[in-house]
Each structure stands twice: as C-alpha cells, then as structure tokens.
Design a protein around this nucleic acid. Structure first.
Lengths: 155, 155
DNA sequence: ACTTGAACCTCTAGCTACTATAGGTTTTAT
DNA sequence: ATAAAACCTATAGTAGCTAGAGGTTCAAGT
C-alpha cells in the first residue's frame, strides 16, 4: 500500500541513522533518490526505510560500504529475475565470510597489541628505578616481538 | 658523535616507514625538520632516526598520532629539565592505559560482530529453503541483539 | 667531464565514511 | 500571520596516510 511517507527526520529516528548520513548515502547512490515535495524536501516511503535499515545494520556490523552496495545489488538482482537465488545466496555468504575473516584477523592483531601494552604498563608499575618503561619500549622495542601490520587499516 | 647522516630512503629502510609517510610526519610537525643539502635534499641524523622509530612503533601499536605527540613532548620535557621524571612516567603510563582500554573495548565489539556473523553464515549454510539468511538478517536484524556502536571508529 | 638512472623534491588530489558549519528555505503549529 | 523546528545546499574538515605528475639532484660508472 506504501502510502505512508516519511520525512528525513522520521527516517532518521526509525533507523538511528543521522540525517546528514542519510543524505550522504543518497549522494553516493547507495540509497535511491526519494521524491520531493514542491518545496524540495525529501519524502520517503516504506521501501526506502527498509533499504536504509539494511544499510545501517550492515554498517553496524562493520561491513564496508562497498560490500553493502554489492549485497543490495544482489538483492535487486534476485527480485528482478526470479532466477539464481542460490548463486546470490552463495555470493552473499561469501561476502559475509570475507568480512568474518577480516574481523578475526583484526581481533588477533588487537589481542597482540593488548598483550604488548599490558606488558609495558606492568613493567612501568613494577619499575624500581624511575625511568618509564612505556617510553623505552616505544623507543627501543625490546620487550617483545610482534608480527602484525599497522593497526589503523580502517575496515 | 652523531656524524652519520642518512637520506630519507635510508631512514625508510631502517624504520620500515614509507618515504611519503616520513615527509608527512615532518609536515604535521611530529618529526623535526632535518637539515638539507645544497640541492635541497633531507639529511637525517641519529636523533631523527630514534624519534622516527619511536613514532613508528607507537603507530604499529595503534596509538593515535595525538598520543604519540604527547609522549614525545613528555620525553622532551624530561630531557630538558631533569625534574619530574615520575610525573612524566605517570602520564605516559596513563596514556598507555587509555589506549589499552580503547583496544579492549574494540576487541569486545569485534567479538560480538564475529559471533553475529558466524550465526548469519551458519544459518545460511543450514537453510533448507533457498532464501539467504545473510540478507534477511541484515534486513530485519532478528537473529540476535547486539549492543555495540558502529565498528568504524578509526582509532 | 659527462652521462645515466635511481632517488629525491614539491604540490595536489584521493582514499573511507562521515561530521560540522554557514546561510538560507519550507513546513507546521498556534 | 508568525515563529520555531525541521528542512535544504554547499563546502570544508576529520585521521592518517597514499598516489600521481612533473621536475631536480646525487652518486657511480665510463
């Protein structure tokens, strides 16, 4: 029936997604352009709401926008042609799996960092001399070895 | 004696920090400006090398640049005045501790995501019908509750 | 002395995923 | 009719780099 229209603010409240972020998603063509009032304000329908929910939840789960875009296209594809639902499912599964691996790698990395930091801090606490272990560990990197990349790769 | 001079490329090799990154650190005034040759090329000394090592290791550990900057200033302060080494140590310790907390929070977050993803993927695998659980979980968010913020806050 | 090629230089733009600000317009409620 | 809340666009900023263009300098070999 789809007669219910929402303002951008209402959409924001329903999804928890901030207003500028919704506009941003429109700008990058992740969320379809909604119709406008005569005055130029956006009016969304139930389908927009659903799509935005999908996007937001994906982002909360840490999926990169690129992956979400692909998942949305897959969804579109499946709705367009009734075919290859299994392929679509397979691909969606694959995207989720890739993401799972990214996250598991990141957890390992961070666990290593956590341990190294703990060592630094403990060394500092128990230091009988007053020289700071935090500083010297950072300077010399002698307390332990670690073999992770930089921790700042944004997912 | 400090007579040994390095080119930016040599510094890069010694630290593992990429050449443009070294220049970037100079640009944001994290690494002091080195002297130049007549032709304008940078020539670094042992002190620069040490400082860059400190920075790089801090970044590898995921410390934000702001924190590294503060640690460097603390270090400078301690070298300038022989005083308050203990205060400096305390502050360094505090910075490291804050960072440790950030990391532990992030690990918790990611563990939640990992579990949710695993559920999605398992649901997809065992699905007797051909509808994809990955998609529907993202759309409806029904399989489980999670209470973490967005996972994309870059550290 | 000269040439060659690697390494250097600056500057600008791009990346991800937003967020903030300025300055103006529309809608809605009274 | 008016006033406040919500909307609009456009631009710039955030973090921490990375990539590219287009030109210069350095060191080694001939």
């Amino acid at each position: 029936m789809d007669l219910q229209l929402f303002t951008i603010g209402q959409l924001s409240k329903q999804t928890g997604c901030k207003v500028p972020t919704i506009r941003y998603y429109e700008g990058i063509e992740l969320l379809p352009n909604p119709p406008r009032t005569e005055g130029g304000q956006r009016r969304y329908n139930a389908h927009h709401l659903q799509t935005l929910r999908f996007i937001c939840h994906g982002r909360e789960l840490g999926f990169p926008i690129k992956a979400i875009r692909e998942l949305l296209e897959l969804d579109q594809f499946q709705q367009d042609s009734r075919a290859s639902t299994e392929d679509g499912c397979h691909r969606a599964d694959q995207i989720a799996l890739e993401h799972l691996h990214r996250i598991e790698r990141k957890i390992d990395q961070l666990s290593g960092l956590r341990d190294e930091l703990k060592m630094m801090i403990n060394a500092c606490k128990s230091g009988d001399n007053h020289s700071c272990q935090v500083m010297s560990v950072l300077a010399d990197h002698q307390l332990c070895q670690h073999s992770h990349g930089a921790a700042d790769d944004n997912e």
